[in-house]
């Protein structure tokens, strides 16, 4: 009996490995394939017989994309929009999630639910009025306008995720600081924020990745080189110039590089935060 159980455990361990390794390959293969394509010469991409490993390595695709297209501008615009989005979320959202986490007040549950429900509103329904309003106030086709538009779906997410991290920071130190005569805001800035630092970083990274990746709002709300972000620009290049696969792959690799690095660094804390926020929601 004991023996069959341990052999059955071994069997299931093997099954688990097969599943995990198989899935990991499926998950990573498109990325590896794109990378291989980006360093192939054109003759190795457009062939009659599939070439799996490049016969010659080349970084031409990267060089051409970076120096002969508007890609650097697009990346710079994306960086600005991403930075602004994180900044707005940090300034307005951090204090809101602190308030939800630390105080009990009339209307708290309803307000928190409100911050959750707004995520249900269809992007398309908001994008059209945002387009009209932004045009009226002169924020259409600007990085600031796009960053403000992004807060429509990222700020509620930010507040919920960060609240989870604030909740798990012990309240005793804060009480001690209050007894020592610190004001509420003093306790918040000097005690709670440093304790929840990891969570704060992870939440910011999550919002940054989402802003960096966003396509639909950017497509509708930017119209020129001055504020266009890389997803829209890349998509336009595909349409207008019939961007060759090699260069398209190079563009893809450049743009996912920051995401992959950031995700690898903060993934454990971030994963905990996403699940905490979603579970309680």
């Amino acid at each position: 009996m004991a023996q069959t159980r341990s052999s059955s455990k071994l069997l299931w361990d093997v099954v688990a490995y097969v599943i995990m390794i198989g899935l990991a390959i499926i998950c990573v293969f498109p990325i590896i394939w794109t990378f291989l394509t980006s360093i192939k010469v054109d003759e190795d991409i457009v062939t009659r017989e599939m070439v799996y490993f490049p016969t010659r390595f080349t970084f031409d695709n990267y060089v051409k994309l970076w120096f002969q297209s508007s890609y650097p501008t697009l990346v710079a615009n994306s960086l600005i929009v991403t930075g602004l989005t994180v900044l707005i979320c940090l300034l307005t959202g951090a204090i809101a999630s602190y308030s939800f986490s630390r105080f009990n007040f009339p209307g708290r549950t309803q307000l928190m639910l409100g911050y959750l429900v707004v995520r249900m509103f269809p992007a398309v329904l908001m994008i059209i009025p945002l387009f009209i309003v932004m045009r009226q106030v002169g924020l259409l086709d600007s990085t600031v306008g796009l960053a403000i538009a992004y807060t429509s779906f990222l700020l509620p997410l930010f507040v919920w995720m960060l609240k989870g991290f604030f909740d798990s920071a012990p309240k005793e130190l804060e009480s001690a600081a209050r007894i020592d005569g610190s004001t509420r805001i003093g306790a918040m800035l000097r005690i709670v924020v440093p304790i929840a630092r990891n969570g704060l970083v992870a939440t910011c990274v999550f919002v940054a990745i989402a802003a960096w990746n966003e396509y639909l709002f950017a497509l509708m709300l930017t119209t020129s080189q001055g504020s266009r972000t890389w997803p829209v620009g890349l998509q336009l290049m595909v349409g207008e110039f019939q961007l060759p696969w090699g260069m398209l792959a190079a563009g893809g690799m450049i743009s996912i590089l920051p995401v992959v690095i950031l995700f690898a660094i903060v993934q454990r804390v971030m994963v905990a935060g996403i699940t905490a926020g979603a579970v309680k929601g």
């Binding site: 794109t34 396509y215 398209l248 893809g252 996912i256 995401v259």
Partner: peptide, 22 residues
Amino acid sequence: LAVLILLPYFLPNVVAGHMWGL
């Protein structure tokens, strides 16, 4: 393995689309 398996979720739609398009 968990990092590799979770990675696709964080990739941009545009790049995911073109990777599979290719």
